[in-house]
Design a protein around this nucleic acid. Sequence first.
DNA 1: TCTGGGGTCCTAGGACCC
DNA 2: TCTGGGGTCCTAGGACCC
Length: 409
Amino acid sequence: MASPHTPTLPERLIAHLDMDAFYASVELLRYPELKGLPVVVGGRRMHEPKTLPDGSRQYARLRDYTGRGVITTSTYAARDLGVFSGMGLMKAALRAPDAILLPTDFDRYRHFSRLFKAAVAEIAPVIEDRGIDEIYIDLSEVPGVRESVGHDPQGGVRAVAREIKNAVQRATGLTCSIGVTPNKLLSKIASELDKPDGLTLLRADEIPSRIWPLAVRKINGIGPKANAKLESLGIETVGELAAADPQMLIAQFGRSYGHWLHEAAHGRDERPVVTHSEPVSISRETTFERDLHAKLDRAELGAIFTRLCEQLAGDLARKGYLGRTIGIKLRFVGFRTVTRDLTLDLPTQDAQTIRQAAGACLKRVDLSQRLRLLGVRVGSLSRPGDPAPARRPTRRVDSGPKPENLSLF
DNA sequence: TCTGGGGTCCTAGGACCC
DNA sequence: TCTGGGGTCCTAGGACCC
């Protein structure tokens, strides 16, 4: 407990910045005539817009798409038609057949990602990367942030957040939404409250009025499973979660997650803004256009497998990592997913070594069902100069020869 | 007409070591 | 010959996120 003699720490000021419909907005910059229309980005097939002789452009429609693939981003006009990120394109086509479909151009999104992050860093350098289109920013030490403007005690914060939004707009031509609160958990929620082009400031004393009415699913870390279970317990809002008996939550969800649920519902979160982090694993995976069978499609699968290993080796080399744990991921028809991994004595970067280890992993899987996805992963990463890992005697892996292992790879 | 690709973190059991 | 306890590594699966 804080005694009168221990100075209380100043409350942190953390921002969460989320680019609005990022991929779709980047596409609208080059196809401005699509502004306001339902547009969806996603899919893997070639559906580039065609420029006609008269200079006008012809776009693919959602109804034209066949094959596997999901929506990566949709414009707000498309969302109004009920098509959202993660939805299968074929399903989306039933809801919005006339929506325009654009292919993803990750290089371009990465470029704009660098632009907006650099613009923010000029104003507030303490940034945590949370992927291509969002960041956390620690504003606590930003000059002017704690000054009040007029009688608005948050005037300084608001001004700095506005400045950040303007800088992002100038650098990219894009809008973003920002939430500023005492921690990452609340800021993540706050940035969504006024999307798009939003700016939401929230103090701890506003949690009951602003946060508790929200659905528990709005909390980052409560996914579909936890949500369903909470619902079955009669808990739908954050306020109901906050009022729930912590011991009951622990009994239902386990010590760690149960305790976290309670803390999160009360808006408590001490996680720092992490400005540097090292990757834990690097992977490549692909979903096939049609389901493949290990025996019937042996040559095709073998070629894909080798290609994934080569791409992965390329990624490792480019990023400057070695990995000691090689793993595979298989997804069968029906979406059952299986993983196997194998830790080598020494880290590697070599495609053939990876391919061989991954092949050994594959031998431990029953391959009688058709596959829809194959992936390869490298973990236990190190840098080329790092000291060699302490070797432990290789233990027998009981691979128990599978009757349906078709010894293909 | 089901459900991409890239990740992180957690849990849990067995091996192995002290 | 019933039964220890802790710590770390390895492996598999699953929830969750962007």
